[in-house]
Amino acid sequence: MTIPRGPENVTPAWLGSVLGVGVSRVDVTPIGTGQTGATYRVAATYEAEQSDVPTSFAVKLSAQDDAVRERVALGYRSEVEFYSQIADKMRIPVPRAYHTEISDDGADVVLLLADMAPAVQGDQIAGCSPAEARLAVEALAGLHGPSWCDPQWMDLSAIVMPKPGDDDAAKGLGEVSRMAADIVIDRLGAKIAPQDQETLVAAMSSVTPWLMAEPKRYALMHGDYRLDNMLFDPDRTRVTVVDWQTVGIGLPGRDLAYFTGTSLEPAVRSDIERDLVERYHRSLLEFDVADYDLETCWSDYRLGAVQVPLLVALGTAFASTTERGDDMMMAMLSRGCQMIRELETLELISSYPSP
C-alpha cells in the first residue's frame, strides 16, 4: 500500500517514488475545508534541480474520519476514474494529475494534482459575479461538448447518478429523494420559507419523471457544478474546475441550471440567465454538437433546475454537516426553489408523458 493515510505519510520518500525523482524535503499544509476529503499543499525540495516537475502540488486524500471514508468510497472512485480515464479527452479546465491511486475497497485514495495558486475558491454563500458566471458556463461546454451523446461513457464504473434509460434506478432515486425532503424539512424546516418547503416537496416528488424526461440527450456531467468547486485566477480570466466525486451521465442542462441556480443571487440570475444559456450554447456548438437549437437548450436548462434541490436534499439529509455547511445548503435551496418557480420547471416536467 503506497497511499498516504494522512498528511504525516506524505513524505519525501513517497513523493519521490511517485514522481520518479529524488526529494529531500516536503512541507505539508492544509488547504480547503472539504467534508468528504482532506486536501493539502505540498511544497517540495528536490535533491537536484528539476525542470519538468513543479515545486508545489495539491494532494487530496481520503477523509480522516473512517465513517466518512467508507460512505463516500464511490465518490473517490469517481474522481480517480475522471482524472485517469476522462480528463485528457475533455476540454474543461482542470488541474493536471501527476498521480492517482485508490485501494480495492475505495476507502483510501490519493490524488497528486497541480497547485493552482494563486487561484482562489469561489464563495458559495456570497455568490459570483456575472463575469465569473460567464467563465463557468463557457468552461462547462468543454465537458459536455466532447462527450455529447457518446455511448462509450456509459461503461464507466463509478457513475453516481442513474444513467439515462435506467428506469429502475430513476424510480429508486425518486423514493430516496422524497425521503430526503422529509428529513430536511424535519431538521431545518424553521430555516426554510413555507413556499420553498412546498417547492422542495413537489420537486422531490417529480424526480422520477424528471430523470426519464429526455433520455436520448445526454453527456458527461460534473454533477456538483458550483462555486465551491471552482478556482478563479485573480484577474478573473480563467476558471479551473475541481472536485470530481459526483461524475454522472445525464441531461447536460442539469449542470448548467445547477450552476446558475446555486451560484448566483436570484435577481442577478434572472437578469443574465438568457445570456448565459446563449453563451453556453455557442460554446457547445464549437464541439460539433449537431441538431441542438437554442430553444431546446433553454428548455433543457429549465428542466435541469431540479438538480438544485435534489443535491441539496441528498447532501443535507445523508451527509455530515457543519454550521457553514447548513448555511450554504439553505442559501442554495432558497435560490434553487425560486428558480424552479420562475422558470415553471415543475409545469414543464408535467408536460411530458407519465412514465
Rank of each mutant, 00 (worst) to 15 (best):
E214V: 15
P162S: 01
T345E: 04
L220N: 04
S299L: 06
M1E: 11
D224W: 08
F259D: 03
R96N: 13
D52K: 12
R69K: 04
K60D: 01
E342K: 12
E132H: 06
A213F: 12
D243F: 02
I340L: 12
I249A: 01
A319C: 14
A203N: 00
M212P: 05
Q152I: 10
K171I: 09
P164E: 03
R341K: 10
D182Y: 05
V308G: 05
D291F: 12
L173M: 11
V239N: 05
R69G: 00
L348I: 11
M161L: 15
K89H: 09
P194D: 09
A67D: 15
E8I: 06
V80F: 04
A38G: 10
N229I: 04
L294N: 07
D186Q: 12
M179L: 15
A190V: 14
G37F: 08
D224Q: 03
D293E: 15
A202V: 07
D275P: 05
G122P: 02
Y301Q: 04
P209R: 12
T39N: 03
P151M: 08
T321C: 13
P151G: 12
G189E: 04
Y352M: 02
G34R: 02
I3Y: 12
V201I: 13
P162F: 00
D167G: 14
M332Q: 10
I192P: 06
D108E: 15
Y258M: 09
T11A: 03
I340H: 01
G20P: 01
A126S: 11
A58C: 06
S205N: 10
S320I: 14
V68F: 02
D233F: 10
G248L: 02
D104A: 14
G261E: 03
S351D: 12
S206R: 03
S299N: 14
I272F: 03
E175I: 15
V289T: 09
D326Q: 15
P151N: 14
D150F: 09
V201P: 04
